[in-house]
């Protein structure tokens, strides 16, 4: 029983981080209808930002305030100068934007490899390995803090999308781009802001993950995969769905790792992903309509 509880706790804590990764993805996917296959790579950049700042003695949680604006700007630049121009050109495959994100991801990974080499980097803080106990269940301090911050960001995002003008415009664009344009929403600008926001959120995830994980250039790919699994689980464009998807994936991975073996961790996520695609297309969103 203790093992089970411990597994669940570990899964939920990890799920908090996954939520943060997923929200950025789901926003981008919902608003622009494209998969951002550079999402994990953006997180990787944020981790390196954290790493560089850490060598100068800045705490990872403080570097959150540097990495997020930086990645927001990078996201804005990517959307404005690389992705938006593609809408206008005539091509055979409408997937050109997706393929562009593949190229961007490649370039980001290789730049990181160029600058930092392929070596694994670690950020060691005094709380990296610290744990505390509730009953017999141990909680990683860093992951618990990350979970808390992830919750705050998620709540803030939720409020932003529901209550502010900009948030409403984003949701309107996600629902029907043409109608939103007719209602006077500058959808071009909205896509730029959304990509920036998505990048900023995944940057936050990167900063939070940095103290408990190792950093290397190829870390982006697996996390991109996780991001879209979360998004499909939760449903496109759904913030609540991203929470559900993130926690489900976290739980599934950690249960899979405990009861099937470490090597099954990834395959569990992929299996759930394919099952959801087949039997619940539209994801969690379809059940709740949120």
């Amino acid at each position: 029983m203790d093992v089970f509880l411990q597994t669940v706790v570990a899964g939920v804590l990890k799920g908090g981080l996954y939520t943060l990764i997923g929200i950025g993805m789901t926003l981008i996917m919902g608003v622009m209808g494209i998969i951002n296959l550079a999402h994990g790579q953006l997180m990787m950049l944020a981790m390196y930002v954290t790493f560089v700042l850490n060598t100068m003695g800045v705490d990872p949680y403080v570097s959150l305030f540097v990495a997020m604006p930086l990645l927001f700007l990078l996201g804005v630049v990517i959307q404005k100068f690389l992705l938006n121009p593609l809408i206008k050109v005539e091509t055979i495959l409408p997937e050109n934007q997706v393929l562009m994100t593949v190229g961007i991801g490649m370039v980001l990974t290789e730049i990181a490899r160029f600058v930092f080499s392929s070596d694994y980097k670690y950020i060691t803080t005094d709380y990296s390995n610290r744990t505390f106990y509730l009953g017999k269940i141990s909680f990683s301090v860093a992951l618990t803090i990350a979970f808390g911050i992830a919750l705050v960001f998620t709540a803030a995002m939720f409020w932003f999308l529901l209550k502010t003008d900009l948030g409403r415009s984003i949701r309107a664009t996600a629902q029907d781009k043409d109608a939103a344009t007719l209602m006077g929403v500058n959808t071009g600008r909205i896509t730029v802001i959304t990509f920036g926001l998505g990048s900023g959120l995944v940057a936050a995830a990167g900063c939070l993950l940095a103290p408990v994980y190792y950093i290397f250039p190829d870390i982006g790919g697996p996390f991109t995969a996780k991001a879209f699994i979360i998004t499909i689980l939760g449903g496109l464009g759904s913030t609540v769905g991203a929470i559900f998807g993130g926690v489900t994936l976290g739980l599934a991975e950690s249960l899979g790792a405990t009861y099937l073996g470490m090597e099954y961790e990834d395959i569990v996520g992929l299996t759930i992903f394919i099952l959801v695609l087949l039997f619940l297309p539209g994801g969690f969103k379809r059940l709740t309509k949120v």
């Binding site: 997937e95 997706v98 995969a225 879209f228 699994i229 090597e263 099954y264 394919i274 695609l277």
Partner: peptide, 24 residues
């Protein structure tokens, strides 16, 4: 049965799934 982005994602997941199966 899936279209567009969903097709792309499903094929990606299957490709990765086979890699994991071959590893395990």
């Amino acid at each position: 049965p899936l279209r567009g982005a969903y097709f792309a994602l499903a094929s990606l997941a299957l490709g990765e799934g086979i890699r994991h199966v071959a590893t395990i």
